[in-house]
Simulated assay, not measured.
Amino acid sequence: MPGALGGKVALVTGAGSGLGRAIAVEYAVEGAAVLCSDRDAVGVQDVVAAIRGSGGTATAHVGDVTSESDCAAAVALALAELGGLDVVVANAGIPGEGKAHEISLDDWSKVIGVNLTGVFLTVRAALPHLVGQGAGSIVLTASIAGLVGLPNIPAYAAAKGGVVALGRQLAREYAPDGIRTNVIAPGTILTPLVEDAFRQRHGDGIEEALSRRATAVPLGRLGSPEDVARAAVYLGSDASGWVTGTVLTVDGGNVHLGPVQG
């Protein structure tokens, strides 16, 4: 059982693409058996095939994080087919564009439902098992949009700010049960979700817009899904055994250093 996660079983939501796919693959490389969950049946089967093709252990689950029964089924499948559950990565999310006075209530509710309620339902489904075994690591994917004001994404920012607050609450409440909860807040990462958001915002000018965003990052580039995946490995592993309640920004320095000037 080599690697930082050898012998552990992990549930990763949103594993069919983007950050979730990168996290699932990196977890498998580091020795975890991974329950890959996504509502995209093709995407989640593809990542499972890729993991197995590289010698890793993975099982696919097709489900929606906004469904209580789907979340419960994902946990049950991990226990039944992979023999346990040690790490929960609540990562599934969707974009949400539009100024506050322009977005519809339906659009607001959809973004909050997936990005915040879906995180809660995923974690709630796993907690009875984690509490029962007296150990576990929960990793929540938020965003720097939940920490600083960014234009044109009020529902997304509200949801991700809620994920940050939920992570701190869970960390405090379940520390006596041996469960650690931490939050990753990525900056601009080149994923299908981010590209879709930039395409909605900038149309044919997407490449120029992404280039401008990259030059504003103190470290001089946009992030990759692997940047976030490596942070998720650390927070899911025993290497972070005395770390809980933290918000780890993976953003090239934007939040704490500010954008490059001049």
Rank of each mutant, 00 (worst) to 15 (best):
G220R: 04
I23Y: 00
G167Q: 11
T122N: 01
D107T: 10
S17P: 04
L82N: 13
G31W: 12
D227H: 03
R172P: 14
T141N: 14
S224V: 12
G134F: 12
E195M: 02
S240P: 08
T249G: 02
D227M: 03
A165Q: 15
L150N: 01
A157M: 03
G31S: 13
A33W: 10
S54T: 04
D196Y: 06
G3S: 14
V9S: 00
Q200R: 13
G134T: 09
Q45D: 15
S109D: 13
V119Q: 04
P218E: 07
G16Y: 01
N182Y: 07
D238A: 05
G84R: 02
R39L: 15
N152L: 15
P225Y: 04
V233T: 13
D46C: 07
R201L: 15
A24V: 04
V114A: 01
K160E: 04
I184V: 15
V62A: 05
L190E: 12
R180D: 05
A145I: 09
S67T: 14
K8D: 02
T66G: 11
P176V: 06
A60G: 07
V29N: 08
G14Q: 03
V123R: 00
Y156V: 06
E68C: 06
L116G: 09
E208H: 06
G262Y: 09
Y234P: 11
L166S: 03
D238S: 05
A72F: 08
G84Q: 11
G7R: 11
E68D: 14
S224L: 15
L170H: 03
